[in-house]
């Protein structure tokens, strides 16, 4: 699964995207797996209420299922316009 990071999430983790092999059933499960990896992930995912997630390029909730999903992106609240 392709996992993307934007804005300060990207800066904290240090990379814009990576291929993650996972059996995580939901976004929350994936977050737990990433958090357990290294300090930089733990820092980026310290407060998920400050994060938003897109699943296959659509805004989603953290309890969204990941079965069949190809791309998950994590980022702070958007500031367009």
């Amino acid at each position: 699964m392709n996992v993307l990071y934007f804005a300060w999430v990207r800066e904290r983790i240090g990379i814009p995207r990576e291929d993650v092999v996972t059996d995580a059933a939901t976004v929350n499960d994936l977050v737990e797996e990433l958090r357990a990896r290294e300090e930089r992930y733990a820092l980026a995912f310290a407060d998920v209420s400050a994060l938003r997630v897109a699943v296959d390029q659509k805004l989603a909730d953290f309890d969204a299922p990941l079965e069949g999903v190809r791309e998950v992106a994590f980022f702070p609240p958007m500031t367009g316009g």
């Binding site: 804005a7 500031t79 367009g80």
Partner: peptide
């Protein structure tokens, strides 16, 4: 809607350094 539902993130560079604009 495009303020908070379109995936853009603003970062400002100024006299006090750089910072991401908070929603």
């Amino acid at each position: 809607y495009l303020k908070s539902r379109a995936p853009f993130w603003k970062r400002e560079v100024g006299a006090d350094g750089e910072s991401w604009v908070s929603a």
